[in-house]
């Protein structure tokens, strides 16, 4: 089955991001195709490489990046949500004249149309959040 995932909550604050990760990983292992993982609301905070959790805790951001590298996962941060919350890639840095960028490997910033397209193209869109 072709699946897309929507993540609506921030990492560490809310279990939704852990559940989304575990679900995505399990789906891939079960042979399903993941069309896209779309991060919305505070979910965009899953994509900052500045995240530094204590060493005895899971690194939620690195986990997504590694999964993306292994399986060529398309990890998309909503641009409008990302701009509000200070998530910046090189293009956004340039456009908005910021002094740096913080997007983690494997993630890209794009528009909400990517979420709608995921809904259209996938057999199921699975939403994680409150």
């Amino acid at each position: 089955m072709k699946l897309s995932i929507q993540v609506n909550e921030g990492p560490y604050q809310h279990q939704a991001t852990d559940s989304a990760y575990n679900f995505t990983k399990a789906a891939i292992e079960a042979g399903h195709e993941i069309f896209r993982v779309f991060f919305y609301h505070d979910g965009v905070n899953n994509g900052t490489r500045y995240t530094t959790p204590p060493q005895d805790d899971r690194n939620i951001v690195d986990r997504w990046s590694e999964l993306s590298a292994e399986h060529d996962l398309d990890l998309v941060l909503c641009v409008a949500a990302a701009q509000r919350r200070g998530l910046v890639d090189e293009g956004e840095q340039e456009r908005n004249k910021k002094d740096g960028n913080n997007i983690a490997p494997g993630f890209r910033i794009s528009g909400l149309g990517q979420l709608i397209e995921a809904g259209i193209q996938s057999d199921r869109l699975v939403v994680f959040g409150d």
């Binding site: 609301h41 409008a80 528009g111 909400l112 979420l115 709608i116 397209e117 809904g119």
Partner: peptide, 17 residues
């Protein structure tokens, strides 16, 4: 959530679903 939902609705309208 309410405002960002409305943003999805408005963008999504362009997809003629």
């Amino acid at each position: 959530y309410a405002w960002e939902s409305l943003e999805v609705v408005l963008i999504g309208a362009a997809f003629e679903q």
